[in-house]
């Protein structure tokens, strides 16, 4: 959590690449796309309204590309996410502290991109509203465990075509029902002296949707499930303690209707102190 009147903002770059993907549950490669690379530059901001209430914003610019075949890559401004995070519980438990957070998020596309050119579309184009519960236990020595679960409602999306086939039948409409999403993750981290080290596990389950059929194209409402593991390092630079650098690696280890992707992320975050107390301490 950001303390009251602190504003943390930064820019993150990520590079995601996959060659194999799961066509339904069948893992395969495809010579007509080769490897699909998705690069994202994301602006993030996090402001402390109070010590217990933060607002969060994210805005990514996405660029996709296939290494083989003839398909065009796409690029553009994707979805603006706004969120509110509230620390509902904080209590000393044993030798450490337990904290509980409630987060509400909403996102919507900021550009009129098409979600109907997967795997090269820059997003799925639905407007989403999500809620998340997070529990954090931090030991005195700086070790912590974070467990969180979220549920995301997704609005229907509109295609540029008058019919489509998915999940075993044809639909004579351009409107696609987007199943909702459940996800959970667990992070084991260490935070001490401006150094943060985390290993992560993330699981997403789409609560409905069809599989990609044999040799078919992916579709926006497919059941895109995945399990991902990752590691993150964040370091507050000693020569300028308001500036932090962040690096992360993620690997999809199991999935359905998604790529077996490896993601590298790097970026910096800068904290601005707008509060009155800041002027006297620093």
């Amino acid at each position: 959590m950001m303390p009251k009147n602190d504003f943390c903002t930064g820019v993150l770059y990520s590079h995601d690449r996959w060659t194999n993907y799961w066509e339904g549950t069948l893992k395969r490669d495809n010579g007509n796309i080769g490897s699909v690379t998705t690069q994202v530059i994301t602006w993030v901001g996090n402001y402390g309204i109070t010590d217990k209430l933060n607002v969060i914003a994210m805005l990514p610019y996405v660029k996709t590309e296939a290494s083989q075949g003839t398909m065009q890559g796409m690029d553009g401004l994707q979805d603006l996410t706004l969120g509110v995070k509230y620390q509902a519980v904080s209590a000393a438990v044993g030798s450490g502290t337990f904290r509980g957070f409630v987060t509400g998020m909403a996102s919507t596309p900021l550009s009129n991109y098409t979600p109907d050119f997967l795997p090269l579309s820059i997003g799925l184009a639905s407007t989403n509203v999500g809620g998340r519960l997070t529990g954090n236990y931090t030991w005195e020595n700086g070790l912590y465990l974070n467990v969180s679960a979220g549920y995301t409602w997704r609005s229907n999306v509109t295609l540029d075509r008058p019919s489509y086939f998915t999940d075993g039948r044809i639909y004579f409409t351009n409107e696609v029902q987007m199943p909702n999403v459940f996800d959970y993750n667990a992070d084991l981290g260490y935070l001490r002296n401006g150094l943060q080290l985390v290993v992560t596990y993330q699981q997403q389950n789409v609560l409905g949707g069809g599989d990609i059929r044999r040799q078919d194209m992916p579709f926006v409402s497919n059941r895109m499930n995945f399990s991902r593991v990752g590691a993150l390092v964040m370091y507050y630079l000693p020569f300028h303690k308001n500036l932090a650098v962040r690096a992360m690696v993620n690997q999809t280890v199991a999935g359905r209707n998604v790529g077996e992707s490896t993601t590298l992320l790097g970026g910096f975050l800068y904290t601005l102190h707008f509060g009155a107390k800041e002027t006297k301490t620093e």
């Binding site: 509110v84 509400g104 909403a106 919507t108 407007t127 509203v129 809620g131 409602w153 997704r154 609005s155 229907n156 019919s163 039948r169 044809i170 639909y171 004579f172 409409t173 409107e175 696609v176 029902q177 987007m178």
Partner: peptide, 18 residues
Amino acid sequence: LLWLSTLLISCDKEVDGV
């Protein structure tokens, strides 16, 4: 805020496509 954002999305999103 949560309530307002829920309004953005109609709860009945069934697409029969017939």
